Simulated assay, not measured.
Amino acid sequence: MNLHNASHMSLDNPSHLGRPGHDELVPSRYAVGIGEIDVLVISDGVLSLPTKMLAHDTDPAVRAAWLEDMFLPPEMIDWPLNVVVVRSGEQTILVDAGLGVNPNLPKAGRTVQRLEAAGIDLGSVTDVVLTHMHMDHIGGLLIDGVKERLRPDLRIHVAAAEAEFWALPDFSQTSMPEGFPDALRATANQFLNEYRSQLRLFEEKHEVAPGVVVTRTGGHTPGHSVVRLASGGDRLTFAGDAVFTVGFENPDWHNGFEHDPEEAARVRGRLLRELAASGELLVATHLPFPSVGRVAVTGDVFRWVPVTWDY
């Protein structure tokens, strides 16, 4: 199966395949082939957040200079929010699930409708991998009516450390806008209550499907994980929240959502060096859609190199 032809992703409703759904006129899905593994990056939308969240530990003047150099507004920016669908063998794997319904963040929460627009039936998903359990990664599975459309034998893979953390989360090292800690805690607890019986916990590394391996990194959250794909000599890493746009030039800057910012910076530096050395593709949750690119490095300075879109 090849995701360059989106019709192959549908099992039940071929009548609308390839046709943009819901009258949308924005690009919201992008297909990549990794050997025999098919990958579809889907935009869940964007999150409007204060720019301070990019680097709460940094001199405001330095942060403002970076934003100006990047032609970004000084106070609020839209963070991209991406999820990934992977098809390996007979398994269809959703990596993260987007925000779901949140009236305070109305520009996101599009994953379910965009899966449908791509011809992907929720009932065809065999596995879900969660990079971590922040609400913008699990909320799509909490939308009313979604659980009933999923397979009863759906497997949800998440690091054991992540599930354990959200039983009593520690926000002491984060720097979030008011209300976010309570919202994150409530969403994680709701998710655990609704899906606990379908969780498949792993400690450090787990092969979800042929060539699809999820590995715990920690840092951003204790159980934060990345998903690495390998097939036929091709490789791609979905880095979740380990990497942000600002993190290439400034990997030591602390993101406001990081529960252990020092460890998150170490994870980011190690991962970027690995990706620069291997030349493999990178996709991440909060890089600009479709976020497919590579990492270049000169000395201690990293650079994100987006791929040229393949039409």
Rank of each mutant, 00 (worst) to 15 (best):
L229G: 14
A167M: 05
H137A: 01
T237R: 02
A64D: 15
G21N: 10
H286N: 13
D234E: 09
G232Y: 03
G145H: 10
A159D: 13
T92A: 04
P169D: 04
L201H: 05
V112F: 06
V295Q: 08
K52G: 04
A242V: 10
G21A: 09
P106R: 08
D310M: 07
S175L: 08
V85M: 14
G35M: 04
R235P: 00
P288F: 00
M133S: 04
H254F: 13
N102D: 15
P169F: 05
F202Y: 15
N255G: 11
V243S: 02
Q190A: 14
E207Q: 08
E178N: 08
L130E: 04
V246T: 14
N255M: 14
R294K: 07
S225P: 00
D69L: 13
P261Q: 14
Y195E: 09
R29Q: 12
H224V: 05
D170M: 07
H134D: 07
V227T: 15
D310S: 05
V246A: 14
W166L: 12
L94M: 15
F257V: 12
G139N: 02
V305A: 09
G139H: 07
T237W: 03
V46T: 11
P251M: 03
R268D: 10
H4R: 13
D96S: 10
G35I: 05
D127R: 09
A161P: 12
E204Y: 01
S7E: 13
T174S: 06
Y311N: 04
W309Q: 07
A167E: 11
I138E: 00
I156Q: 00
H8I: 13
H254P: 01
P177D: 02
V158N: 10
M135H: 10
Y195W: 12
N250S: 09
E207G: 01
V39G: 06
V128M: 02
T245E: 14
P27G: 06
R110K: 15
E24R: 13
G299M: 04
Q173N: 03
L281I: 07
I34H: 08
P27E: 09
F180G: 01
G145S: 07
R235T: 09
L271R: 03
L141F: 02
G269P: 04
E68R: 12
H132S: 11
H206K: 06
